[in-house]
Design a protein around this nucleic acid. Structure first.
Lengths: 198, 198
DNA sequence: CAGTTAATGCGACGGATGTTGCGTTAAGAT
DNA sequence: ATCTTAACGCAACATCCGTCGCATTAACTG
């Protein structure tokens, strides 16, 4: 993609330029926010020439997509706590953290996704992957006999996590760690009593 | 705000200009999408001069905020169907409609909210108002004895509606009317069995 | 070590975006 | 009917944004 990771010349300078630019993006994002992010600003701060940034990343959104890719952990799996409520609560803790940290790369890429199809697609893939990996917490709960077989994993995950995105990103209201955990528990309870059958 | 509704000279020409510009915004939004929306484009299509649009609305986001205000119904109340599940399903039907219609002013204002504080604040107020008005469906359910007293109205509404925003706006995946209704029923069921106590 | 060539640096350009000063129009007042 | 004055139209301007051609650097090759 826009990443230069597998380029034909991944040598020292190219890698150094990418690291410098990515660091500058994060710093500018922290100082000026998404709408204050400009290629000129990033280039100036990083010490890399404007033209180079334009050529390698095209747009501000391209920079953010690359930053998201840089931070994504390919080996990520949901933590295992021993209970569905605990697993979902840990998921929500991570999500809340990603959305409230400053600067939040996730929120910035969400903003970017409304402007360029590339960012939208990158974010979509990122989330599809995360939710697919997360489905195992429901599978494990079924195997433990904690919840009925045939429980709709996707709906469980949506009920648990969607309120965080909605309230923190769209409604722009704070959410305590306690409330985030409560949504996780609500979803687990609903699954337990058999509401979320396939 | 940016609206000219209560200006000192709300006469024929000013009102006509506003109507023309708003119509042009909607048309441009439908044709080019949010990221293709420009003041010059809107001005050209509406037949109003560039400078006039800049002076009255300042930015593209200002145009969208005004369009949202124009479409907002001050007398809105949630429909009354006789059951909590029915009321929530009707809410979700309206939300799904607002998010999937083309062009979706709601989605456009969400996009704008990531760029200017004015748009973010306008959207926040809009939603706070809507969720406050919607709380009555939970109150009614308690009065009918359908769900326990002390049920957390906000959590009921979030569980029912957040998955729609999350899946349609952020995950950018389609959602059938049936699934939207199912989330409404899930939230109602969870309330009924007492999971969502205050 | 010398040669090849991507990647970067550099300056200049064209177009888009937003602003300003001033003249013109028309809504509302007397 | 006349006057006043917001609101609008107009043109010129400054700035920002993205691109291009060409020179330079430095990573890889043999």
């Amino acid at each position: 993609m826009t990443s230069g990771e597998n380029a034909s010349r991944p040598g020292g300078r190219t890698a150094r330029v990418r690291a410098d630019v990515m660091a500058a993006v994060e710093a500018e994002l922290a100082e000026r926010g998404y709408d204050g992010l400009t290629i000129d600003g990033v280039a100036a701060r990083s010490g890399v020439h404007r033209t180079t940034v334009y050529r390698r990343w095209r747009t501000v959104d391209g920079l953010l997509v690359d930053l998201l890719a840089m931070g994504a952990d390919d080996n990520w799996t949901p933590a295992e706590t021993g209970s569905l409520a605990g697993d979902l609560a840990e998921l929500n803790r991570e999500i809340r953290s990603a959305l409230t940290v400053l600067p939040s790369v996730t929120v910035a890429v969400i903003a970017a996704s409304f402007r360029t199809p590339d960012a939208a697609e990158a974010l979509r893939r990122f989330w599809v992957d995360r939710y697919e990996r997360s489905a195992v917490v429901v599978t494990r709960a079924v195997e433990r006999g904690e919840i009925p077989a045939g429980t709709d994993a996707h709906r469980v995950l949506m009920l648990a996590t969607a309120p965080l995105y909605h309230q923190l990103v769209l409604l722009r209201q704070p959410m305590s760690a306690k409330l985030a955990t409560r949504y996780a528990h609500d979803a687990a309870e609903a699954a337990k009593v058999g509401i979320l059958h396939g």
